[in-house]
């Protein structure tokens, strides 16, 4: 397994004070928090930083980690020396906030799995007949899927307490039906698909949060869709009937004469399906033909001759 340089991950020196480490952590946590960050690898970075902080914030774990020596480089092949943690008794610190399920093999080889004192094993499991925990997951779909409904195979990982009393990672795949009309941020509740109950306790529920993949044509706001539609200057000026793509297929749009760029035209009820379906807004963008031939240049010159047009009149010049 690879050695992890927790100081490097947090951008602090090896002799940083506990206060400096805390400040560095707060800063990085804000930067990479998956709810806040727009960085593509935010979640992975957030977990890494959380793991580094878990070790460095706890003077006992930090001292033990420091004892490995300063010569290790991040990514170097690493095996903990035998009896490396002799003389240390890890306690305190705990796993507040951090999710110990996601710590690296490197962390586990040093500090064990799931923390010390078996805090997690007894977590929320006091009653003998306990209802299973609810599980949460995200499901990514395309805008088109929300128009028609779809099915998605969903692979979920969870830890289960094995017969040997240790947590084991289990994977299961569910085939989930995504109904027509779901929207960004909505939850789908799958009854009894969460964690298994204890004893006669019922299983928990699984909550799926719907997220739309970014679409090359449409942007979504609530139930409404927006489409930028390029139009030729003469179409905008004289009016036209245009073919417009929608997730439901192509429709005809009547463009009134004298339309200007940026104008919004509403296709009522062509947004996301619902009892009261959303609308699809077409935003006009005037596209100019290139003046790359003699004929085209002449057409532009004729244009200029025929129209006394000052696009900057409103600037007072």
């Amino acid at each position: 397994m690879e050695f992890k340089d927790y100081y490097q991950l947090m951008g602090v020196k090896r002799d940083a004070t506990q206060d400096e480490i805390k400040r560095a952590y707060r800063k990085l946590a804000r930067k990479y928090h998956p709810d806040v960050s727009k960085e593509p690898d935010a979640e992975a970075r957030f977990k890494e930083v959380g793991e580094a902080y878990e070790v460095l914030k706890d003077p006992e774990k930090r001292t033990a980690y420091d004892q490995l020596g300063a010569n290790w480089k991040a990514g170097q092949d690493f095996h903990p020396p035998p009896d490396w943690d002799q003389g240390f008794e890890f306690h305190g610190g705990g796993f507040t906030g951090a999710d110990a399920d996601h710590f690296s093999d490197f962390f586990e080889s040093l500090f064990g799995r799931g923390g010390f004192g078996g805090a997690r094993a007894g977590h929320a499991r006091r009653e003998f007949y306990a209802r299973g925990e609810d599980a949460h997951a995200k499901v990514l779909i395309d805008v088109e899927d929300a128009y028609r409904g779809t099915t998605r195979p969903l692979t979920l990982r969870h830890t289960e307490l094995g017969a040997d009393g240790r947590p084991h990672l289990k994977e299961r795949t569910l085939n989930v039906s995504i109904p027509k009309g779901v929207r960004q941020g909505q939850h789908i509740r799958l009854a009894k698909q969460g964690g298994a109950g204890i004893g006669k306790g019922a299983a928990g529920d699984l909550y799926l949060e719907v997220e739309f993949r970014p679409h090359p044509l449409y942007s979504v706001e609530g139930k409404d869709l927006y489409l930028n539609l390029p139009v030729a200057p003469w179409e905008a000026a004289l009016g036209a009937t245009l073919k417009v793509p929608t997730p439901d297929g192509t429709v005809d749009l009547k463009l009134p004469p004298g339309s200007s760029g940026g104008r919004k035209l509403r296709l009522r009820g062509r947004g996301l399906p619902a009892k009261e379906p959303g609308d699809l807004y077409v935003v006009l963008q005037i596209a100019l033909p290139k003046a790359d031939s003699e004929a085209a240049k002449k057409a532009y010159a004729d244009f200029e001759q025929a129209l006394a047009f000052n696009p900057r009149a409103h600037l007072g010049i």
């Binding site: 289990k170 795949t173 085939n175 039906s177 909505q186 789908i188 509740r189 799958l190 698909q193 619902a274």
Partner: peptide
């Protein structure tokens, strides 16, 4: 360990407005 339950299609309840 992997368990697969591809046989049945699960339909949930959408928590809409």
């Amino acid at each position: 360990m992997k368990t697969t339950d591809m046989m049945s299609l699960l339909a949930g309840e959408v928590l809409d407005e």
